[in-house]
Design a protein around this nucleic acid. Structure first.
Lengths: 252, 252
DNA sequence: GTAGAGTGTGTGGTCTGACCACACCACGAA
DNA sequence: TTCGTGGTGTGGTCAGACCACACACTCTAC
């Protein structure tokens, strides 16, 4: 193989440049594959390879047909690609589950603390709504865990940092099968889920109380203990501040 | 378009399944494109589209020829893909620069605190080595910033959480052009870089002192003030604990 | 026995072409 | 004005041709 640039990279880099220079922005439509192919002097297959990368990374969505919604449209979904990347890296053991959990603890405790001390208060309406749903009926473990993930993500979204939210969503998604498998090892799913719901309320209460340290600690133990309880691989906790000692039980 | 699964997704999901089930692991070679095409009943182009995704996400590397190093080999580089993803999302305004900076602050302060309180102490040899290089000769802004990025990353690596390290590398890389552009707006690059180097030493000293709060605060102001000084978009700091008030100056 | 040259094979990389389904859009007929 | 048809351009997919590459093997010469 020569030092010739890979044809698909030529396409990818061209599009990245256009994005950086503002020539392309979310909502814009890329030229058609055949046009890109001719303009960049590469084969249509190479164009498609680059577009596939962009699609999986959440940068574009594609549709057939003609008219304004056809073709490849720039979307730039913040969550795009993060889940796929993390899931695959975990699957291939590039990311250790323990490190995923540790990272999650760092981010989620920071989010909780931020929400606790933010002024003016950020709305936890979405989060509370999810708790209402979770408490309103009996849910299977899978249903519960899906809503649980949404609850955690809703806090990140309330904090307003989309990078953190996307990263957290990706982290959660990457170990979803582990979390699910863990649930089936529990002596009593009913007891655990009931406790988890109480803890969710604790988290919301801690945040609303404005005490960042308590919010941190509540989230921390909530997450850490679910993993301990379900025997997920041990993780090292990275750089969390001293937690407030309390009798806060276990978590997701 | 029908509900038929996309051909390239069939390939991608098949490989993900094999990774999850342990049938494929790092170091293994995938079947050749033509074989995968026949086995999965899709065209070779579709196989290639999926492989391109995996390649950019850092899951495989490809090589022509024959013999043990030819073909698509599973690599699962932890840093793989994260830079590409974040760079593209920032380019497409899916990730706001301010959120990138905020996330970076969360992760890097957590790393510093972790290193400060870890027992036994983790080696900062690589980090200190980089500082020695930076201080041993006059560097252009670009050279300096490259080593600066390496220094920060070396701390993350010393903390041992590869997910955090990969994420931080991606975060830094995604705003590299901003950081670079910022450097050229400074009244005196020489003065700023000299100060930054002193601050790097402060960070190492704070970590070695074992005081997590000081380590956090030192990293925090180091990073935050470089961005303020170079007028990077304002960011909101997410959930950092009270910092120790001190006269710690500015940072990268 | 060893080294070098030639050949064959399987690999990825690229391009081209054919055809399909789709989603409009324009035009003509009722 | 409404409806139907044909045309057009879009992405999606597959097949095929050919290339460069990197071996692995065989044969020949020394």
């Amino acid at each position: 193989m020569t030092d010739e640039p890979r044809a698909w990279r030529v396409v990818l880099e061209s599009i990245e440049r256009d994005l950086l220079d503002g020539r392309l922005r979310p909502g814009d439509r890329l030229p058609g594959e055949r046009t890109l192919s001719a303009d960049l002097g590469v084969g249509r297959s190479s164009v498609r390879e680059a577009l596939r990368v962009l699609e999986v990374l959440g940068l574009i969505r594609t549709a057939t047909g003609s008219g304004p919604s056809a073709g490849a449209i720039i979307v730039a979904l913040p969550g795009g690609g993060m889940s796929a990347l993390m899931r695959l890296q975990v699957a291939a053991t590039g990311f250790a589950v323990a490190d995923i959990v540790g990272t999650r603890l760092v981010l989620e405790t920071a989010v909780a603390a931020d929400l606790a001390e933010s002024a003016p208060k950020r709305s936890l309406e979405a989060s509370v709504g999810l708790l209402d749903v979770m408490e309103s009926r009996t849910l299977s473990a899978d249903e519960f865990l899906a809503l649980d993930a949404q609850f955690h993500l809703s806090l990140a979204e309330a904090s307003g940092n989309q990078v953190i939210a996307a990263t957290m969503a990706g982290l959660r998604s990457s170990i979803e099968s582990y979390v699910r498998a863990g649930a089936s090892t529990l002596p009593s799913w009913e007891a655990t889920s009931a406790r988890l719901m109480l803890e969710h309320r604790d988290i919301v209460r801690a945040i609303e109380s404005g005490d960042a340290a308590v919010a941190r600690a509540t989230v921390h133990s909530h997450i850490e203990n679910y993993y301990s309880e379900t025997n997920l691989p041990a993780h090292r906790v990275v750089g969390l501040p001293e937690t407030v000692p309390d009798a806060t039980p276990r978590g997701t």
